[in-house]
Design a protein around this nucleic acid. Structure first.
Lengths: 230, 230
DNA sequence: TCTATTTGTAATCATTCGATTACAACATTC
DNA sequence: GAATGTTGTAATCGAATGATTACAAATAGA
């Protein structure tokens, strides 16, 4: 795929180039960039790939955000905001009476985290930022973002360090399994299936759905959950 | 830093360009590449950076391995071998009588994993491979490598899936904390310190040592462990 | 309608980077 | 001590890519 804007491509992209308000176009670019950066990483992604995914020209992407780095930083900031907001919503919910505090709250936060997979690119863009810790600018933002999550879980959720550590550990495993594209081989490798059934539990369908890896295969618990419940 | 081989640089590199047997030079390149790829990732690293870290010219690096991709794949394969071997050594050890099986074995495997930080780049190169799962070639190798670890923990260590999941989760968190360079701000951020004390436990010194983040600071348990015990 | 602003692209530039080529210096063997 | 192989680099090529420029077309405001 070269640089010329050949209409009608095979990959998913925003078709039809019309005049759209800059603010809205900006959102489209950010959404496209989130997917592209999440997949290829900061260095691996190109502004042209983002442009094609957004259905516009490469110069427009660059002019809208000044630099590729600014675009990535904006994507990461948005992803972090979305994550923090999602957690705060869960924290604001009344906990289902009868459930013990911490244990159930952790489970609900974890479920909310997994559900973020629907907004493709958010989790992976964040992970890509974490992995780019060597970069002076991106690294600093990544560290601050990671610690912001930690402080939220400590100061707002009231978790002790050990609980937070385990929670973050599961999150990083989830990110890694997504990044390595393990869902792609769910049906072809028994070990992959076993690990993912164990790691994703009731959210297995959500993950396989979002990653486009087959459709139905349940076989776990007879507890409802037939279709997708986003 | 351009491309000409200016002798006497500031960064760590293999000085003095002498004639060295190809097999040995190959090892030097792999060691350098492990560090560079671990830091910058596959796309972010350049063959020239590897060459400078190895103290030789860029064309020599390319000719020795054919392509940058081959070099990365070799680095990752070596890292995986080292990891598997390390785990097998732990499994072959007689468990300290009196300790319950699984729990202590997990702890010893985890400690061995953290100690791999001494061989800089191994853990991060593996993590960088995982995160490059979108690439057809690298991704396939990464998935297979990840599953190889899983199968080893299941079939050789005899762990149930839940134990393996928790073990891998802690490993991914460890990798992420390293990649994001959290040790760099150990002294500057209380949340970072708290999280790392909790996540690294008795291995805190080993990590801070290996990452060059300050030297002594103990303050945890009065249980020996004064200096570095590699 | 005339002008100014906004929204967009084509063309292209300058740099970076993986790879190739050609060649030099050293070592080994007979 | 030539001949041959090994170890290494300088020079450079071509493609990729982030960024810039110049310009076109639509839109809004007077």
């Amino acid at each position: 795929m070269s640089r010329v804007s050949e209409e009608s491509g095979t990959a998913a992209k925003e078709t039809t180039t019309e005049r759209i308000p800059a603010a809205l176009r900006r959102e489209q670019i950010l959404a496209a960039a989130s997917r592209v950066f999440g997949e290829r990483g900061y260095s691996g992604a190109t502004t042209d790939q983002v442009a094609q995914a957004a259905g516009i020209s490469q110069p427009y992407v660059v002019r809208m955000f000044g630099t590729k780095e600014n675009l990535f930083l904006e994507v990461v900031a948005r992803a972090l905001d979305k994550l923090i907001t999602t957690f705060r919503v869960v924290l604001a919910e009344p906990q289902p009476a009868g459930d013990d505090d911490a244990d159930s709250l952790v489970a609900r936060l974890g479920a909310a985290y997994v559900d973020l997979i629907e907004d493709r690119g958010i989790l992976l863009s964040l992970m890509q930022a974490f992995i780019t810790g060597h970069d002076p600018v991106i690294g600093a933002k990544a560290r601050e973002g990671f610690l912001q999550i930690y402080r939220m879980l400590r100061d707002e959720a009231g978790f002790p360090p050990e609980i937070i550590r385990d929670f973050l550990a599961n999150g990083m495993l989830f990110n890694t399994l997504l990044a390595i594209r393990l869902p792609d081989i769910f049906e072809d490798d028994e070990a992959a299936e076993e690990l993912m059934r164990c790691a994703f539990r009731g959210k297995l369908d959500v993950v396989l759905d979002a990653t486009g890896s087959h459709a139905s295969h349940a076989m776990s618990a007879p507890t409802g959950t037939a279709g997708t419940h986003s």
